[in-house]
């Protein structure tokens, strides 16, 4: 019996609460797309995606906790690294064309 199954409020468990939190994080991520659309520079878009990536990591962790799947944290870890690499790669690309990798 993990804490995630403990009752929280109104019939929802803690897990459900975390799930709702995850949903809210996704909603924030969607809001962040505004910047991805509007730009105006591509750095803005990269930035937005970077924030999205961090959000993704958090969402994954929340999902892992909520659904009782500790494996998700491993994925989150990979994401975190990946997100970093991606941002750096794209940024470097915009600076020195052909300089990636």
């Amino acid at each position: 019996m993990s804490v995630a199954d403990a009752a929280l409020i109104a019939g929802y468990t803690v897990g459900d609460g975390l799930l709702i939190a995850a949903t809210l994080f996704v909603t924030l991520a969607i809001a962040m797309l505004y910047r991805a659309i509007m730009g105006p520079t591509n750095q803005d878009r990269v930035l937005a995606v970077n924030v999205l990536g961090t959000n993704t990591v958090v969402i994954l962790a929340l999902l892992g906790a909520a659904l009782g799947e500790p494996w998700f944290l491993d994925i989150a870890l990979v994401y975190a690294l990946l997100n970093f690499l991606m941002s750096v790669a794209i940024s470097k690309f915009t600076v020195e064309r052909g300089g990636v990798i």
């Binding site: 930035l47 970077n50 944290l73 975190a80 997100n83 970093f84 941002s87 750096v88 470097k92 600076v95």
Partner: peptide, 22 residues
């Protein structure tokens, strides 16, 4: 989780820096 936190703390600013510098 701690490891994750560490990564985020290290990588996030670096990424931001890379973007800003770009």
């Amino acid at each position: 989780t701690v490891l994750l936190l560490f990564f985020i703390f290290v990588t996030n600013p670096t990424a931001a820096h890379a973007i800003a510098r770009a």
